[in-house]
């Protein structure tokens, strides 16, 4: 439980953090809440030579609304999101996802930005951010850009962040009227990670048919993904049990499904379908309630 030796840096502002990251190239790593990176370092699965701690960048801790969008600073903890009254009203999928993460100790320290940048294939946030068609802000010394969630998750523990870019914020649209959301998850009994996690947001039209549905899935493949075949199968359809079931059957289509000690690929695919159907049902129930 002793990591490889490393140098520790605690920049005073974002500019200094970006400069350090650019300077160290592949040997530097950003530390946010430290609840994924630090265990990995102790297990020697990660051995950065330079650790750049964002702990003093308290201005990256915020949740605010502007122009129909919610923006969340990268260092906002899971607990802050879980308990935000703004989010409960304007984007309830996020607090619902936050409360499923890890345990109390993890939620008190772990951050949304750290989790997204780490991109664990069984983490919860990627499913929600994908379902909400969110964007992720990446900044380096000289510039800043917004990366759509659909392009952010590249592969196992790999994101579209450049080697010198710091993830600084996340933004998602405010939930529209006649929409409903749900995050459903089967917890791994020991680690609390998602064996399968499905985030769904549905929008009804005036005839109370499904205008659109978006579905983010985690825990199933090497990275979280949008279940586009499910979404297409639902467009314009009546929200009947039969239609949901038929659409959810596509939940793991085209995915290289994980197989491990806890769940074979076949079982996981089945779970993905069942949790997708249930998440859609719950989201629709809530959309009808409005």
């Amino acid at each position: 439980m002793i990591p490889e030796p490393f140098e520790y840096h605690i920049p005073k502002n974002l500019e200094e953090a970006s400069r350090l990251l650019a300077q160290f190239g592949g040997e530097g790593k950003i530390l946010a809440g430290g609840h994924s990176l630090v265990p990995m370092m102790k297990l020697r699965l990660a051995a950065p030579k330079h650790l750049i701690d964002l702990g003093r960048l308290t201005d990256l801790k915020y949740i605010r609304e502007s122009d129909g969008r919610i923006e969340i600073g990268a260092l906002t903890t899971h607990f802050q999101i879980q308990s935000s009254s703004l989010l409960k009203e304007k984007c309830p999928l996020l607090p619902e996802t936050a409360r499923e993460i890890g345990d109390v100790q993890v939620r008190n320290k772990g951050t949304i930005g750290g989790s997204l940048a780490h991109s664990d294939p069984a983490a919860d946030w990627p499913a929600a951010i994908l379902a909400l068609a969110g964007e992720i802000q990446a900044r380096n010394v000289s510039s800043s850009r917004w990366i759509p969630a659909s392009e952010f998750f590249v592969d196992l523990l790999t994101t579209a962040l450049g080697g010198d870019e710091v993830l600084t914020a996340i933004r998602v649209p405010v939930a529209p009227p006649r929409s409903g959301h749900a995050y459903l998850k089967l917890h791994h009994p020991a680690s609390g990670y998602a064996m399968v996690g499905v985030a769904a947001q549905v929008l009804l039209n005036e005839a109370r048919h499904i205008e659109s549905a978006s579905v983010g899935v985690t825990g199933v493949g090497p990275k979280a993904y949008r279940a586009t075949a499910v979404e297409e199968a639902l467009r314009g359809k009546a929200p009947s049990r039969q239609n949901l079931e038929a659409a959810a059957a596509h939940a793991a289509e085209g995915i290289d499904v994980n197989s491990d000690l806890y769940a074979s690929a076949e079982y996981r695919s089945h779970l993905a379908q069942v949790y997708t159907r249930r998440a859609l049902e719950k989201a629709l129930e809530r959309a009808h309630g409005k």
């Binding site: 439980m1 520790y8 605690i10 430290g34 609840h35 630090v38 265990p39 701690d53 702990g55 607990f79 109390v104 100790q105 993890v106 008190n108 320290k109």
Partner: peptide, 12 residues
Amino acid sequence: SPRRSCLTRATT
């Protein structure tokens, strides 16, 4: 608030 001290750096 409860924290895991094994994952918390002393300086923080």
